[in-house]
Design a protein around this nucleic acid. Structure first.
Length: 287
DNA sequence: AAGAGGCCCTGATAGC
DNA sequence: TGCTATCAGGGCCTCT
């Protein structure tokens, strides 16, 4: 589900709600997430205090007492919900589904604090959690991924080195976490629209001008999405507060057969499948 | 070594 | 109504 901006929003709200709070108990209702939750998981986490909440790409990183870390990836359908004591309804800030009540199914993991619970829900179970006993191990795990688009390492020389020899299309390059990490299927289409690059174009066909645009608009789109509270493409009837309005600014994603948002362009947005994933673009504006 | 494709899952919706 | 097919914000593994 969430790409970089959505995980950033979860990070921010979790920071507010749970920083310095102690996890008294951990309940695992279903160990079969993307990777099996091992039997030591509960003991590794419980009775520790959250000292910091961070994010790398689409990973939520929860720093615990004793310099331990809990890494959470939300996959396609993972969400975190907070339920406060004596409160049936729950806070929607951590959720991108914006349902009003806690889902009845797929509440796989619960973190119990003194005044509230954090519940990890994930219907498709493509998400996962992993415990790291120290920073080095966490770092080694994350090292295999490419830089975030928001980082200084995502620059012209990096793109020249890592894209210009690639024979695969730029859309697939942008969602390849080993090249650049944090961009997913929605934002890839959005970014390429701003860049005026056809998603099917090969990395090796791109010129420096295109690299400059990719760097500029990756940052622009992701930062703007964070500012708007991320994107919620399901159940947004009940959106409240600042959560999830970026879908209102989509230029191409989900807009097949609709007029191109460029006022001077008469073409319609086209939907194609690239490696089985839906991709949206304007063939007139994106060359 | 890089790239394409399959697969892991459930749920919502479209179409008959 | 009830069936089936398709698609969904991801990423790992295997094969070529």
């Amino acid at each position: 589900m969430p790409e970089l901006p959505e995980v950033e929003i979860v990070k921010q709200s979790l920071q507010k709600a749970a920083k310095f709070k102690k996890i008294n108990r951990v309940l695992v209702n279903n160990r079969n997430l993307r990777f099996k939750i091992d039997n030591k998981f509960e003991n590794n986490i419980k009775n520790k205090r959250i000292t910091e909440v961070k994010r790398f790409a689409k990973f939520l990183i929860i720093k615990l007492d004793k310099k331990n870390f809990l890494l959470i990836h939300f996959g396609m359908s993972g969400t975190l919900h907070i339920i406060r004591k004596n409160q049936k309804k729950y806070h929607t800030n951590l959720s991108f589904y914006h349902s009003q009540e806690l889902p009845k199914k797929h509440n796989h993991i619960e973190f119990v604090f003194s005044n509230f619970k954090l519940i990890y829900n994930d219907p498709r179970r493509f998400g996962f959690m992993r415990y790291f006993s120290n920073y080095i191990k966490l770092k080694n795990y994350l090292n295999k991924y490419g830089p975030e688009p928001l980082s200084k390492n995502f620059n012209i020389s990096y793109l020249k080195k890592n894209i210009s020899k690639r024979e695969k299309n730029i859309k697939n390059i942008l969602i390849d976490q080993y090249i650049v990490s944090g961009i997913g299927n929605i934002y890839a289409s959005e970014i390429l629209f701003y860049c005026k690059i056809n998603p099917q174009k090969k990395g090796s066909e791109l010129k420096v001008k295109s690299f400059e645009r990719i760097i500029k608009f990756s940052k622009y789109v992701l930062n703007r999405a964070i500012l708007k509270g991320g994107s919620s493409i399901k159940n947004f009837k009940n959106i409240e507060l600042k959560s999830g309005y970026y879908q209102n600014e989509f230029k191409v994603y989900g807009k097949d057969n609709q007029q191109c948002s460029n006022a001077k362009c008469k073409f319609k947005v086209k939907k194609v499948f690239i490696s089985n994933r839906s991709t949206f673009y304007c063939k007139n504006c994106q060359k």
